[in-house]
Amino acid sequence: MSYKKGKIYIVGLGPGKREYMVPEALEAIEKSEVIIGYKTYIKLVEDLLKNKSVISSGMRKEIDRCKKALEYAKKGNIVSLISSGDAGVYGMAGIMLEILLKEDSNIEAQVIPGVTAANAAAACLGAPLMHDYAVISLSDLLTDWEVIEKRIECAAKGDFIICLYNPKSKGRQKQIEIARKIMLKYKDKDTPVGIVRNAKREGEQIILTTLDKMLENKIDMLTVVVIGNSQTFIKNGKMVTPRGYKV
């Protein structure tokens, strides 16, 4: 007796606009019978979800969404578990794979990459990530703040370009101030900074400033902040970090 075997696609939607979704992500959603995701991300692909079962939930329900995806896949369904950006960068891929490993499940899972916020913001700014860079989330919901501070210190001391995710929220006002203070120990106050809100989606806003003045601008959870290294410069409205080529 044959039976239908389920599968889970863990899909990165990119920044949100359809042209920035990779074709494989679109194919995975098309193949899927069940779509599971955070309600805000579900809205980004609503037009693709006709005749599909859709399960959406609010923030901090990540584990529940993964368990639901496994439940449907065990029943033989093809499931897409969606994230914004890249599912493997602060997204759903790690949680889903951890749950599959814990359950010792033989359900197939495939991670579909997406354009992450750092890459989207960098493209808006010019070419600020042309050399070694670190991506650091300022959210201390799942990571102790002491650990985050240490990572900022090490990245700044090592002259990395630094991309800050989740830089500021209504409940987290001081963290970005502390991060800037740490960076000023190792980076010049005139270090170029790019602030991008809603990168590559509707309502995009781009600000070019300096480390000294970056906190004078609006920064929130829809923002990515890119702090350059000692070689980064801004010219003609573009933020560029030289790779070292003789041009």
Results as ranks from 00 to 15, higher is better:
L222F: 03
A123P: 00
L101V: 04
I161K: 03
S137Y: 12
M1N: 01
Q205S: 03
E149L: 11
I219N: 12
D47G: 14
T210F: 08
G228C: 07
I112A: 05
I227Q: 06
A117W: 00
K246G: 10
G194N: 10
S83D: 03
A118L: 05
A109F: 04
V22K: 13
E108A: 00
M96C: 09
P113S: 11
G171M: 07
A73D: 14
G228K: 01
I234F: 10
L26G: 07
F160H: 08
E19N: 04
E216L: 13
E149D: 05
I99D: 14
I162D: 14
I82R: 02
D188K: 00
L101M: 13
N198Y: 03
Q231A: 07
E103F: 07
Y245P: 02
G171A: 06
K61F: 08
W145K: 13
V22I: 15
E62W: 08
V196G: 06
P167S: 08
K74S: 12
K102D: 15
I78M: 14
C154E: 15
S84W: 02
K50I: 14
K61A: 15
P192K: 04
T232S: 14
D188R: 01
N106Y: 04
G12W: 02
G37P: 13
Q231R: 01
V34H: 07
M96A: 09
A73Q: 09
S80I: 08
K170H: 09
C124Q: 03
T223F: 12
T143G: 12
M59T: 13
